[in-house]
Simulated assay, not measured.
Amino acid sequence: MTGKTVAEMSFEEAMAALESVVSQLERGEVALEQSISLYERGAALKAHCAAKLAEAEARVEVIRAQEGKAVGTAPAEGL
């Protein structure tokens, strides 16, 4: 563990921590109380990763708008 809070983690650090939490929970080798704590941490990590992705997407949209390109996302059906 890096000693950082979830809010201080980069996207990559949070994803690695989330993968570790999921792995521990999937093995089922932890006590009930620890499982609950891990689940809570996993939920916080997931929310942090989602926020970081949304932030990155917004930044890309700004860059694309500045370049005069279409902004926003659309489903890639038919590709």
Rank of each mutant, 00 (worst) to 15 (best):
H48E: 00
V30F: 05
E55R: 06
A70V: 12
E8A: 08
V71F: 01
G42D: 04
V62H: 07
T73Y: 12
S10L: 02
H48N: 02
Q66T: 03
G78T: 14
G78N: 14
M9S: 00
G68C: 01
S23H: 15
A16K: 06
A7L: 08
H48I: 00
E12T: 09
P75V: 09
S20K: 14
L79P: 12
V60N: 05
L79N: 14
R64W: 00
A14S: 03
A58K: 08
V22I: 15
G72S: 03
E8N: 07
E57P: 00
A58F: 07
Q24N: 15
Q66F: 02
V62E: 10
L45M: 00
R27S: 09
A76K: 12
E77S: 13
H48V: 00
E77K: 11
E13A: 01
A31E: 11
V62C: 05
K4W: 08
E67W: 07
V71D: 01
L18G: 00
E61W: 08
E12W: 09
A51N: 05
A44K: 12
V30H: 06
S10R: 07
G3D: 04
E61K: 10
P75G: 05
F11N: 06
G3E: 07
L79H: 13
A50T: 13
A44R: 12
V21R: 00
R27Y: 10
A51I: 03
A14C: 00
G78A: 14
A43F: 13
A70N: 11
G68N: 02
A51Q: 08
V21S: 01
A43H: 11
A51G: 06
A54W: 01
A47F: 08
A76N: 12
I36T: 14
A58L: 09
E29T: 11
K52G: 05
S35Q: 14
R64H: 04
T5H: 08
V22G: 09
E67Q: 12
G3T: 08
L45I: 00
L25K: 00
T2L: 12
I63Y: 02
S20H: 15
A65D: 05
F11M: 12
L53W: 02
S35K: 10
M9H: 01
E55F: 05
L32T: 15
T5W: 07
S10Q: 03
A14K: 02
A44Q: 14
F11P: 00
Q34N: 12
A76R: 13
V6R: 01
A44D: 12
Q34R: 15
